[in-house]
Design a protein around this nucleic acid. Structure first.
Lengths: 235, 235
DNA sequence: ACACCTTATGACATATGTGTAACAACCCTG
DNA sequence: CAGGGTTGTTACACATATGTCATAAGGTGT
């Protein structure tokens, strides 16, 4: 789970409820990603790596239960259903499809928040023993252990500050791919920093100083002029 | 979890509901243990090793939320609350105390069964990674016996207060991994304390004073600035 | 009611991380 | 090869996170 601000994906077509949720969630220190259709929802679930999904069953473009099944096909992401339908068979169907909780509209925000905490609690407990997803990477003399949040260079542990680590972790998770300035800034500092590319330069410099043998000729942390940065994945 | 017939502990004083639950549960291939008071419930929870607890909040002899807290003190057993009280604040209180779900009476049996399946699903997922039954740890001159709840340093027993012990136990169970402030606060003090990080500082300080040779330069209880704490597992 | 232990609270010193500014090096283009 | 824009580096001030002490409040058993 993201360390500080859990990311919540809300799949909901009603703009009024979207607004309501956004206000409540952001004020309770959650990061919110919005999708108004099932298709978009599934896309964002893969791309944005949310910590929790709130799903309205009454979407116009797709069957909510089907979305739950598709999500469960590849992920154990907590899913909380929010629905106008209060029929017991609807609840049973959704819960058995893999949903973790089911709230009937209208519901109180405090209850939703409490149930979100329950879901995140479960997720964080499960995460502990989760070997899924390569969590240890080796590049030349570098070793990055995402599970333990440790970085080694030639057997020696390297201390990284929170921002340095977050930046590196994102590069590692997308090793080999070019990540744009915008993307990195948004992921590390947040959406309002997408133009502050000097932050990036400074922290890339810091990382190179700590990780590269010759920071002036980086072997791992490569610059893609005019685009962004890339973590070299082979040797 | 028991392989075939999950064992359900029902803590409920109303004989009518007890009968109703017994009929439904046994016919759905659950084994049922009954307790009519909170005291008995806690006793059976330890003795019978159930897979799931269904707890009525309206017990005559004790506060249901308190029972949840006591259970959570030593176990992650799934707890489903069943209550006549439908007030939102009751739900929030119980869920934050550690309950996994909350149903308001009257409820339909199919829904309860579906929510039980959800809870057991979670438990079985967690269990996979939980299998490590290591209950004794050695780090340098420290020895921590989780089963007996004892801590030694260089052969000499160290007395820890309840909170100190819980904090240390969690660090030990995740030795090597960085645990965020939020996580530690939630596990030790509960979800409502996630912002009170000064508690953590003080109790880490206490632990270091008792466990470290030089509390100013800790070898075991390490700080990860801006993130959390970590128990060094090597050396 | 008392003594005892534990936990909570407040104040303060210190350590660390981050944002900012200034400047140097680099790359592409004309 | 000159110039503008992009990128890299360094140093420092500030804010924040952290560690520690002292003390108050709460609880328990005698």
């Amino acid at each position: 789970m993201t360390a500080n601000r859990p990311k919540v994906l809300v799949i909901e077509d009603d703009p009024a409820i979207q607004r309501f949720l956004r206000a409540s969630l952001t004020s309770h220190d959650y990061e919110m990603v919005e999708a108004t259709t099932g298709k978009l929802g599934l896309l964002f679930a893969t791309e944005q790596q949310p910590d929790l999904v709130i799903l309205d069953l009454g979407l116009p473009d797709s069957d909510g239960v089907q979305i739950v099944r598709e999500l469960r096909g590849w992920s154990h992401l907590p899913i909380i259903i929010v629905s106008a339908r209060g029929q017991e068979k609807d609840k049973v169907l959704a819960l058995d499809a893999g949903a973790d909780d089911y709230l009937t509209k209208p519901f109180g925000m405090p209850e939703l928040l409490a149930r979100m905490r329950v879901a995140l609690r479960h997720a964080s407990r499960v995460e502990e023993g989760d070997a899924e997803g390569e969590l240890e990477f080796e590049l030349g003399d570098l070793r990055i252990d995402l599970a333990r949040r440790l970085v080694f260079r030639g057997g020696e542990q390297i201390h990284l500050t929170p921002i340095e680590y977050r930046l590196l972790a994102i590069l590692v998770r997308h090793a080999g791919k070019v990540l744009t300035h915008q993307f990195l800034l948004r992921e590390v500092w947040g959406p309002t920093y997408v133009n502050q590319s000097h932050y990036l330069r400074i922290f890339m410099s810091n990382l190179r100083r700590k990780l590269e043998a010759d920071p002036a000729c980086p072997r791992y942390l490569l610059t893609e002029q005019g685009v962004g940065y890339r973590l070299c994945c082979d040797g």
